[in-house]
C-alpha cells in the first residue's frame, strides 16, 4: 500500500468539523467534500477518518444519526453540535496562529 502524504497532524479533526458546518454529511461525503474543495490536494484516508469520527463523537463535538440518502441507502450522518462549533473556532484560531508563525519564519530575510 503506497502511502499518500499525511495531513498536518491534528488538522483532520478541524477539517471534519469545518466540513460539517455547512450541512450534516456521512463519512464518505465528508471525505469527498474535503478532496473536492482542496482540488484533490487533501485526501482523507479512510483509515484515519473513521477513528477520527469516533473520537469526535466521544468528545461530543458531533452527533450521529442514521438517515436515507438520495439513492435510498441507509447512511450515518454526522451533525455538528454547539460544542463542536466552539471547538472549531478554537482550533481554527490556533491553526492560523501556527500558520502565521510558520509564514514569518519562512519569510525571514536574514536567513
Amino acid at each position: 500500500m503506497a502511502k499518500k502524504p499525511d495531513l498536518l497532524p491534528g488538522t483532520l479533526d478541524m477539517l471534519i468539523l469545518k466540513t460539517l458546518t455547512r450541512a450534516p454529511l456521512h463519512g464518505y461525503g465528508i471525505a469527498q467534500h474535503i478532496k473536492r474543495i482542496s482540488d484533490d490536494v487533501l485526501t482523507v484516508e479512510e483509515g484515519s477518518l473513521y477513528p477520527a469520527l469516533q473520537r469526535l463523537l466521544l468528545q461530543g463535538w458531533v452527533k450521529a444519526e442514521w438517515k436515507m440518502t438520495e439513492t435510498n441507502r441507509r447512511a450515518r450522518y454526522y451533525t455538528l453540535t454547539i460544542e463542536g462549533r466552539k471547538q472549531l473556532g478554537l482550533e481554527v484560531s490556533e491553526f492560523e496562529r501556527m500558520i502565521a508563525a510558520i509564514g514569518r519564519v519562512l519569510q525571514d530575510q536574514e536567513a
Binding site: Y28, A31, Y50, Q59, W66, R73, R74, A75, R76
Partner: peptide
C-alpha cells in the same frame, strides 16, 4: 465520555454492525 463508553459496551454488537454498515456504504 465514560457513560458513552459504557453505552457502547452494552451494545457492542450493534456498534460493530453499524460500523460495518457505514464502511460498506463507503
Amino acid at each position: 465520555q465514560m457513560s458513552t463508553k459504557l453505552l457502547h459496551l452494552l451494545r457492542r454488537e450493534q456498534y460493530r454492525n453499524e460500523l460495518e454498515e457505514e464502511m460498506a456504504f463507503h
